[in-house]
Design a protein around this nucleic acid. Sequence first.
RNA 1: GCGCAGAUGCCCGAGUGGUCUAAGGGAGCGGCCUGCAAAGCCGUGAUUCGCGGGUUCAAAUCCCGCUCUGCGCUCCA
Length: 454
Amino acid sequence: MIRLYDTAQQSLVPLKLRDPGKVSLYVCGPTVYGPPHIGHGRMVLVFDVIRRYLAWSGLEVTFVSNVTDIDDAIIERALKEGREPAEIAVKCETVWWQAMERLNVARPDHIPHATDYVDMMVDLIGRLVDGGKAYTTSDGVYLSVETVPGYGLLANQSLDQLIEGGGDREIVGTEKRHPGDFALWKLAKEGEPFWPSPWGDGRPGWHTECVVMSLDLLHEGFDIHGGGLDLTFPHHENERAQAIADGKTFVTHWMHNGFVELEGEKMGKSLGNTTNLLDLTEKFDPRAYRLLVLQSHYRSPIEVTDPTMAERVVAIGRLDTFARRTASLVPGISADPEIVDQFRALMDDDFNTPGATDLLFRQVREGNTQLDEGNTEAAAVVGANVREIAGALGLELDESAGAEAPAEILALVEQRSAAKQSKDFDEADRIRDQLGALGWVIEDSAAGATVRKA
RNA sequence: GCGCAGAUGCCCGAGUGGUCUAAGGGAGCGGCCUGCAAAGCCGUGAUUCGCGGGUUCAAAUCCCGCUCUGCGCUCCA
């Protein structure tokens, strides 16, 4: 039985599925107005791991994650740069998927785009207006939060408390009936992109798309709705409010991942280039970021700094080395069911990935010991364990033993072996240094010398 | 101000009532292996878990207060 922390219930609860054996998961994707940052990276890695694990554990997963391709931020940038909003959205989305590929984040089963759902959003808003849950002003249509029972559930605060706080906040839209009311439809200003609606040409507000898209693709009462911690309020609260106002059963569980911190501070978009996900994956092995994310619990804050990343690069190397050592010991051998069960127990407990990586590394040590002692069969089983766990977590291990080294490198390895043979160690060391300068590391073993890239 | 998290060794981070004389990774140091390395293995490292009280036979783990940090309080993953 899988347990997870449900933000709405503020406690660990058993995962309750609408349809036995199937799990429907919706995660709020990016608004495509700029390059993805490491915070996005953590979010997608967290839910990629959850999705992979649910599938690994035998559930039929339907994973939906949207792209918000119309939004104030996109329009703002378009106006500033004199470009079309759609052009920016398309370009940014391309970059987004590049980053996802580098991180080995699997594509969602469905990737709905907000602009493809405007008609359905207009329908929803129409129903809300007709039902007296929403009203029009001179600049758009607003949802009346006072008509929604339990508004503030995710924020864990009453409407009054929500309004009292945030002292320096500017309350926009003076025509609003309640300061907490939020825009469902925004009438277009000069030069802004628009779609037709009964209330005038305009565009949908931020939260409406996710309600419409998740319910369209996953239907009422789907299982899990996820996203970054900061989306809890207002975004998710407002999605929920619309679904409730529309008389829909929305979602069973809410999950939110914790934030990325840079040396104890909130990640800011101007804090330097490693906050850009593409830069980070350029500078470090992208798998190191996945490992870093895995090694802390998804709800905890994580420190993403050069040193913490560099540490994971080394740790990934350790996994690769082990994968190489066990690559072809006993083909087709199965993992130890007991270890697999241990992994399952850890992950079933609110996706305890730190515990799982703990198990993974202890297995690596065990396997290395078996190898050193020449217990091939035992080592092969451990190798299978490691592959099983790493695979379930989306960690790809590099098993290539350097066979793809160019001929000139292999020739140098031969020369060195010959030099060693004739006890010409000065020459052997000279060649080793030469290889090192070329970016190759030589490793001796009973079976002979091999090279790998540094 | 209100709400939610968090504070663990040199660093990153698990652990949420007894198996904790506190995992795993990284760094350091010592050793084995090696011609020397690399890789791997072994050993070493918090008598202690932000501070102060309390509950309990038993607390890093529960309760109260305090300090500090992060997040949210209307469009930020």
